[in-house]
Design a protein around this nucleic acid. Structure first.
Length: 306
DNA sequence: CGCCAGGTGCTGA
DNA sequence: TCAGCACATGGC
């Protein structure tokens, strides 16, 4: 058992914001599979109590995983550019973008495309059961996320039998790229966002959205701004950008939120999903979009993009 | 049962 | 560039 300090952090909000798929809450503890082992974490004020099944899972490891070294208030100051996002920032204090494993993030978001979160979670769990290594911690057990070689060696039929559907060949091909060295993930942490995104999009089943998720959650590319159906809703409800394509929405968000756009995306994403699930009627209909405040000249910005 | 889900790849204008 | 379409699967 060990502890570490965690300033400006909410463990529960962060883990439930849709960026990671394998954390489980049991009796007041969050259990997560990290690298070679299993950890359990509990927040008490500005400290995290932890226990781990593997010596590699140190306080420093967890501090890095939860990105506790970043100055969150400063980041929020930089993206606090309108009332829409301001409300989300105020509503979810301590929400951080974690630094997850690159391969796990890539594989997970290939599985995530055109899928719902419940099913994504079960798919990844079955993948781990089939190809991961068993780990246990104080009565709780499970499987680590599989190594690329294990997935690359699996047959497409076997992967389909897990429920992957047409994503099975995509996942296998991507794992094979990593095993073959065609895609060197360890390099992506050091190159810029555009280079990393381009490399990721070389994989089958990886388009703009998946590449942005992997760049943001797996490779610290904080300007990445993934746009899925929920973010389209955000843009429609709040900004009246109903007719913009995803490409245009992406360019708009990059300009609006800048170097930390990925953080803005995570707050907006979590906010709209929370509103939808907890209070369906709190949202206006798409044809009744509300514009709370518009500090930037949106029309001029849109002309500039054209 | 029909609709939806943290989309992508392909095709034809 | 952009629209339109097929694509596996299962939760609701």
């Amino acid at each position: 058992m060990f502890e570490l300090a965690c300033k400006d952090f909410s463990l529960g909000t962060t883990l439930e914001s849709g960026q990671a798929f394998r954390w489980i809450e049991r009796e007041g503890w969050f259990y997560g599979f990290l690298g070679p082992g299993l950890v359990k974490v509990q927040q008490q004020g500005d400290r995290l109590r932890c226990a781990a099944s593997h010596p590699a899972l140190t306080p420093a490891y967890l501090g890095r995983y939860f990105a506790l070294d970043l100055d969150l208030p400063h980041i929020l100051t930089l993206i606090n550019v309108d009332m829409q996002i301001h409300q989300a920032l105020v509503r979810y204090p301590g929400l951080r973008v974690m630094r997850q494993d690159g391969w796990e993030t890539l594989a997970s978001f290939i599985c995530a495309s055109f899928n719902n979160i419940k099913r994504i979670e079960s798919l990844i769990e079955r993948l781990a059961q089939a190809y991961g290594e068993p780990v246990a911690l104080e009565g709780f057990g499970g499987f680590t996320f599989p190594q690329p070689a294990r997935v690359a060696a699996a047959s497409e039929k076997a992967l389909r039998s897990l429920g992957l559907g047409y994503r099975a060949p995509y996942l296998k091909a991507t794992a094979q790229r990593i095993v073959a060295g065609t895609l060197r993930l360890e390099h992506l942490s050091q190159v810029d966002y555009a280079t990393a995104k381009k490399a990721l999009m070389g994989c089958e089943g990886v388009g703009d959205k998946v590449a942005d998720c992997v760049a943001l959650f797996g490779f610290e590319k904080y300007e990445a701004f993934p746009i899925d159906v929920w973010m389209e809703r955000v843009m429609r409800y709040y900004f009246r950008h109903r007719k913009m394509t995803r490409g245009r929405l992406h360019a708009y968000a990059q300009q609006r939120y800048g170097a930390w756009a990925g953080y803005a995306q995570q707050y907006l994403y979590h906010d709209i999903r929370q509103r939808r699930t907890s209070a369906p009627y709190a949202l206006p209909r798409p044809d009744q979009a509300v514009l709370i405040e518009e500090p930037h000249p949106v029309r001029a910005l849109m002309r500039a993009e054209a």
